[in-house]
Simulated scan of single mutants.
Amino acid sequence: MPSARDRVLDAYETLLIEHGGAAVTLDAVAAAAGVSKGGLLYHFASKEALAAGLLDRLRDRSAADAEAIRNAPDGAVAYYVRTSAPGGAAPGGLTRTYLAVLRLADSTTAGQAVRDALARVDADGFAALLDELHDPVLAWLAQLVGDGLYLRTLTGTPLPPDLSVDDLLARMRQYAPPPA
């Protein structure tokens, strides 16, 4: 069972995703998390502290995902592309937290902190891809492909008909073969 702190962050993510940051209040987060407002304030003393907690969660999940990218049995590129595609979300809630942070960026004065956290996620993924590919241009291309698939995931846009992630990876492997 998740801790009260995690339940609060889960509820905050849900409210951000469903309603946007402007509609989220501490009372609404406490109610959605099933904790008292005092219980919420014990973990997060303000709405700004709650946002900072979400950014910390994003950084932690990004670091865990970067490690999973590096250790993926079928290689970093395949993992990155597969988990970026619709239906292939990375384990650990990174996609959900990332989407909530994007919604937070739309409605907060914490803009620089949000941009810094998103830049950290980008840097983690790039570094993990570079570890496998050893070519910054190929790593960036793989990241851009993953980013495009990730956008489809976030917006619910399906892949083109008669094409699959495996088709995409097969073509990408012509330019960036898997590790030996």
Rank of each mutant, 00 (worst) to 15 (best):
L130W: 10
R115N: 11
G156E: 05
I69Y: 04
P160T: 15
L55C: 01
L151T: 13
P73V: 14
A32S: 05
S36M: 07
S107W: 08
A68Q: 06
G39S: 11
Q112D: 11
A78V: 13
W140Q: 15
A90Q: 06
Y98K: 04
S84T: 01
A31T: 12
A30F: 04
H43E: 02
V137Q: 11
T153N: 01
P91N: 12
R115F: 10
A127W: 03
L50T: 04
A66Y: 01
T157K: 12
P161S: 15
L102T: 13
K37N: 12
A32D: 03
G38I: 10
D162E: 14
E67I: 02
L168Q: 07
A68E: 01
I69D: 04
A33I: 10
L41N: 11
Y80F: 14
E67W: 03
R61P: 00
F126C: 06
D106P: 00
L133I: 12
V121D: 06
T95K: 09
E48Q: 13
R96Q: 06
A45H: 12
G148R: 05
L144W: 11
Y42R: 15
A30Q: 07
A45I: 08
V145H: 07
L159Y: 02
T157Q: 14
Y98W: 11
G156P: 00
A76H: 00
R59N: 07
G38F: 09
P161H: 14
D162S: 14
L41H: 12
A33D: 02
V101I: 11
D166G: 09
R120L: 11
D124R: 02
D166A: 13
A78Y: 03
V145P: 00
L58S: 03
R115C: 06
